[in-house]
Nucleic acid binder design. Structure first.
Lengths: 364, 364
DNA sequence: CTGAAAGCGCTTACAG
DNA sequence: CTGAAAGCGCTTACAG
């Protein structure tokens, strides 16, 4: 005997009204072909009985689970909550649930996480891929959130433009020697931000890039970045590719007795949770994550609804000799969502207070 | 005609081997009663064919979806990623998927989020309730992650003990006048931390509590906390109930030219992502989130497997006249997972550098 | 406008 | 040790 679900089902409603389950189903799903009066009675009975449709029954019949997967590269990424929230919200509006999968650590785990989602019967998934990962056929529609410089179709913030915004901001404030602070040179998001940054400046402005990862290989995790020295060398602005690094820079400068923004400006990226409340509040660049999520979910849902039924199978990593993103990428073209500058107190015009630099060098 | 799922199913395997689906099912599920040799052949065929079991079919038959819900109060909480990751990991090991639901904002949304999960057929859920929320019958087993002072069974970190740890640490460093910094006085987690903190100190040590929420009601969000004044008044340590507030305190002190930890110590809670990398690195208290998640999931899974089949229905808020947590709370008793002190550079012995305080007042 | 029937893929009690 | 059959709850093409 099969395990009965305790709640009422279509048959129960049908029986209590003396109609057929087909009619109840049609009435409840609004598929028409049922008289308005009967629809009303059926609705009312369903409500009284506390009817909750069985996803399992529906899924088995329709071949669709109504669930999307969300694969995240590194769940401990401080940006993750925002992404998860936005995706969950957009999916809920579209009538889908969201299963999470954490691909913590290596690419193998990511492949496994994707497979777990497929096993659970997701109709499609949103993947924020690990650095440098390619996603091959997952067996279902996939939306990739990454930087536009990733091969294949993606939806993402326009990191390059974001870099340009912050660069212009600092240039307009009079900075002429700027240190860019990056985490890992393998990150295409970070490279895009840095590339955009540099592209907005002419030769009169000097930039240098500091990769924290390389520094930490020598000096250990959490080491100082040597920013006091950089100030001595004439750097007046520190533009980090993430608020996390900006925070590190800000506190290091402050600890060294260098006033921000009086003697040095600091900027970040992403408008993470602490950015508005540190002192001085952090100037940063914000992605429109809600817009990104909506584009991804909309594309995904339309691919699901128009596409062939779900093909099951093991996901695999792309091998070197096949084109990238051979899976059913759902976005018709790369989407670049503009980023927005958020000016706060950590970046200001130069020369507010004592500094080791000559005023002439600072102000234009 | 029903929509066919493209992948192979049990019948396909059965047909290709000339056996019955029942036998294939038994072989694959290891339910015994099939000869070892045949099990082997069935396994092999399933693998070659790339068989992925249909969750929908299984769920419909067994009345269990194999999916748990995770309801989070405020997904933008910086602790969320860790919780989500730990829950997802523990659930995956137990063979369950995790559907997320964000109860952003008010209690109504939380109720709605719970209902959405029930509609999706979750077998149980983990709820991190919004402040002061009571969860009534959700119609399925529920594990609540909250502070032990919440009525009903919960699993959580021992926030009270965590408060004691940090208090002892500061007392041993010689601090005698300590400012506690809290966010909201309505938070029982924060109250527990503060309560524990005070309980570890005797009358020779003065404490005062600053609630940021109240301050911001007057001075606006992101306002200064007036910590420089507090230093003038003789406070030498600032113990925040969260790393977020600790960061706010740290940067405010630094910006005011007060050296940390030379002239004032700062401590936090939760070991959030930036804690190790700010300068000076933040002394804090870490929860064992993996342990919490495991306890919650283990309890939930055992309740699901031993319990009655899932009862469907609308979740509702508890009304005032019924006992709290009347739902099937799965933990047999309150679980308190110890918190662990992480000593870093933001808290140190006093008198390292210039200070406005007399040495006598500082060092015992 | 309404209903009878088939069938999605699975598991399980039962018969052989 | 193996198989035939029922049935979980739903939707949909078809017949009336």
């Amino acid at each position: 005997m099969a395990t009965a679900r305790p709640g009422p089902n279509l048959s129960r409603i049908a029986a209590s009204l003396g109609v057929s389950v087909a009619t109840v189903s049609n009435a409840l799903s609004g598929k028409g072909r049922v008289s308005a009066e009967l629809v009303e009675r059926i609705r009312a009975t369903a409500a009284t009985l506390g009817y909750v449709p069985s996803q399992a029954g529906r899924a088995l019949r329709t071949g669709r689970s109504g669930v999307l997967g969300l694969v995240l590269p590194d769940i401990s990424n401080p940006l993750f909550p925002q992404i998860a929230q936005a995706i969950e919200h957009a999916a809920a509006i579209a009538g889908y649930g969201v299963l999470i999968a954490d691909s913590r650590g290596d690419v193998g785990t990511q492949t496994e996480a994707i497979h777990r989602l497929v096993e659970r019967g997701v109709d499609g998934m949103v993947i924020v891929p690990r650095r440098g990962t390619r996603i091959a056929d997952a067996g279902c529609p996939v939306a990739v959130i990454d930087t536009p410089s990733t091969p294949g179709n993606t939806v993402s913030a326009d990191h390059w433009q974001g870099g340009r915004e912050i660069a212009s901001h600092l240039r307009n404030l009079g900075h002429r020697k700027i240190l860019l602070i990056g985490g890992s040179s393998a990150s295409s998001v970070q490279n895009d931000r840095i590339g955009g940054f540099k592209s907005a400046l002419d030769a009169t402005i000097k930039t240098e890039v500091l990769w924290i990862e390389k520094l930490e290989e020598q000096d250990g995790p959490g080491c100082l970045l040597g920013l006091a020295d950089k100030v001595q060398q004439g750097f007046t602005a520190f533009a980090a590719v993430s608020d996390l690094h900006a925070l590190r820079a800000l506190t290091e400068l402050q600890r060294a007795g260098i006033a921000v923004p009086d003697s040095a400006s600091v900027t970040g990226f992403d408008d993470l949770i602490w950015s508005p409340v540190v002192t001085p509040a952090l100037t940063t660049i914000r992605m429109d994550i809600a817009a990104i999520a909506e584009i991804a979910i909309t594309a995904l849902v339309s691919a699901i609804q128009n596409g062939e039924p779900i093909k099951k199978g093991r996901p695999r990593e792309a091998s070197a000799d096949e084109p990238l993103h051979v899976n059913r990428l759902v976005t018709a073209e790369k989407s670049r969502v503009p980023m927005q500058l958020v000016v706060r107190q950590s970046s200001g015009p130069l020369g507010l207070a004592s500094t080791n630099l000559s005023a002439g060098e600072l102000l234009t």
